[in-house]
């Protein structure tokens, strides 16, 4: 067991590359990404798990990085908006899924997770899967319709 320390040394796979960092135990994964790891694409909205602006994929699952202590990323796989190729954004851009953009990195990560597991969209309504990503601009129609379009597209090309 690691002895109690004020600093924690971590290693994890971030957007496909391994990283090693030392952080304070108070740092949230969100702080670590936006600060020392220089990936400011992930946004902070509420800081309380409600808005989803800070959504990243942790071991392949969408999580709110504002609620993840950094030390729990040790040994994990983390994917952020910076790792999404441009063509994965195209559907959202074309479908009116973004206006001010504050929610968009989180929306895009949850949408990416759903696209990787298309069976989810058959088991749960898309609006339920996307309920953790609040958007104050679009009224959600653009988000849901462009995700639907992307899923139909993916099915065609699969």
């Amino acid at each position: 067991m690691t002895p109690p320390t004020s600093d924690v040394a971590l290693g994890f796979l971030l957007n496909g590359s391994s990283v090693s960092v030392t952080c304070a135990p108070e740092d949230r994964l969100l702080d670590l990404l936006r600060g020392p790891l220089r990936l400011p694409g992930t946004k902070e909205g509420c800081g309380e798990g409600e808005c989803g602006a800070c959504t990243v994929l942790l071991n392949g699952l969408p999580v709110n990085s504002c609620l993840v202590p950094s030390y729990q990323a040790d040994g994990a796989t983390v994917e952020t908006i910076e790792a999404l190729a441009d063509e994965r954004h195209a559907a959202l851009l074309e479908g009116g899924a973004t206006q001010c953009g504050a929610c968009t990195p989180g929306v895009a990560m949850t949408a990416e997770w759903i696209r990787r597991h298309p069976a989810l969209g058959k088991r749960f309504p898309l609006s339920e899967l996307m309920a953790g990503n609040l958007c104050r601009c679009t009224g959600y129609d653009g988000i849901l319709k462009s995700l639907e379009a992307a899923l139909t597209d993916d099915e065609g090309t699969a």
């Binding site: 109690p4 135990p25 108070e26 949230r28 800081g47 309380e48 798990g49 504002c66 609620l67 993840v68 202590p69 030390y71 729990q72």
Partner: peptide, 24 residues
């Protein structure tokens, strides 16, 4: 601390918790 979805809410403002020892 398990998933942290209760303990980490509003974390930057919960300074009293920053004094504690956590068992991950």
């Amino acid at each position: 601390i398990a998933g942290g979805t209760d303990l980490m809410v509003h974390w930057p403002h919960r300074l009293e918790l920053h004094e504690k020892t956590f068992v991950d």
